[in-house]
């Protein structure tokens, strides 16, 4: 209201921001169509074996040789961990108990009893696909209820703009995962759900301020009046938007950098999603509401049938 640096015109520059987001999502979709998503073991039948050898560094060749000794020729394991002692291999077939035991015993034979620990992940691809579909379905139903609530408490334009912002955030994360070929696993779905929860929360706070400023304003006749309200509302909540974004990004950043490898995918998705969520509340959701609302200003009588 009274600060001097507040003259950034978010609304004026909405088109470039729409374009940037649209471009990222478009490139993401092209990548998805051309190369598909890098689906992890959860989405393909097979077994993922993650073996850690205490106190012994390995090379890829050594690991591959041990798998061959255990009866699995032609594997292409990866070796990681801080001491190069963590072997990961993906088997296109589903390993049964005996096969897993054989592999672990072969490793133990080479490095000594009790030095080998492992994680096993086996799936039937149907499960992951089912869970993804179920998640999409659940989110769709949830969106309907969000639209209902926001329509009752605010108005339908806010509801629609908020949902578009959610879709935007989910799509941005999926697109970036598609473009950089980050692996997608089941936990990724939980991450997308978290992002959606955060995004709606973040957007509603700015909408609440727009609603408040609209109700305070008597003169609401031109596009310029609306644009001023949106700009002011964004500006008034900007400190909150930035501070909240900074704190959650700190938290997600710590998880990504310090957390266990098992949640790297989760943390990365959350981090991208949080940035996108904070961004979309200001640069996507609010301008979209403006786009919807300006029609009701120009043609006040037909407001609800337009758009």
């Amino acid at each position: 209201m009274n600060s001097k640096i507040q003259q950034f015109d978010f609304v004026q520059k909405r088109k470039p921001f729409f374009l940037v987001s649209a471009a990222i999502i478009a490139v993401g979709i092209v990548f998805m169509l051309l190369f598909g998503l890098n689906l992890g073991v959860d989405f393909q039948s097979g077994t993922n074996l993650d073996i850690q050898v205490e106190g012994n560094a390995l090379t890829v060749d050594e690991a591959s040789q041990i798998f061959a000794d255990a009866g699995f020729e032609g594997t292409s394991p990866t070796v990681g961990g801080s001491d190069s002692n963590r072997v990961t291999n993906r088997f296109a077939e589903v390993l049964n108990n005996d096969q897993t035991t054989t592999i672990i015993e072969t490793f133990e034979a080479k490095f000594g009893e009790g030095t080998v620990s492992y994680e096993e992940n086996t799936v039937d691809a149907v499960m992951a696909k089912e869970l993804s579909l179920k998640a999409i379905y659940a989110v769709s139903v949830a969106s309907i209820f969000i639209i209902l609530y926001v329509t009752i408490r605010f108005e339908w334009r806010f509801a629609l703009a908020a949902i578009l912002a959610i879709v935007h955030d989910a799509m941005i994360v999926i697109s970036i995962f598609a473009i950089f070929r980050f692996e997608i696993n089941l936990v990724f779905i939980a991450a997308i759900l978290t992002i959606i929860g955060y995004s709606i929360n973040d957007t509603i706070v700015i909408f609440d301020r727009i609603r408040e400023n609209v109700s305070k304003t008597k003169k609401l006749k031109t596009f310029h009046d609306l644009a001023t309200i949106v700009n002011n509302s964004i500006m008034q909540t900007l400190a909150r938007s930035i501070n909240t974004a900074v704190t959650v990004i700190f938290a997600a950043g710590c998880l990504l950098v310090l957390g266990s490898p098992a949640i790297k995918v989760f943390s990365l998705a959350i981090l991208i999603g949080l940035i996108s969520g904070a961004y979309s509340s200001i640069f996507i959701a609010s301008p979209i509401w403006l786009e919807f609302k300006k029609n009701s200003i120009n043609k006040p009588k037909k407001s609800t049938t337009e758009v």
Binding site: Q52, S117, E119, E120, T122, V123, M127
Partner: peptide, 9 residues
């Protein structure tokens, strides 16, 4: 068996 996740302690 449809899905197994096994994590070493």
């Amino acid at each position: 068996e449809k899905y197994t996740q096994s994590v070493d302690a």
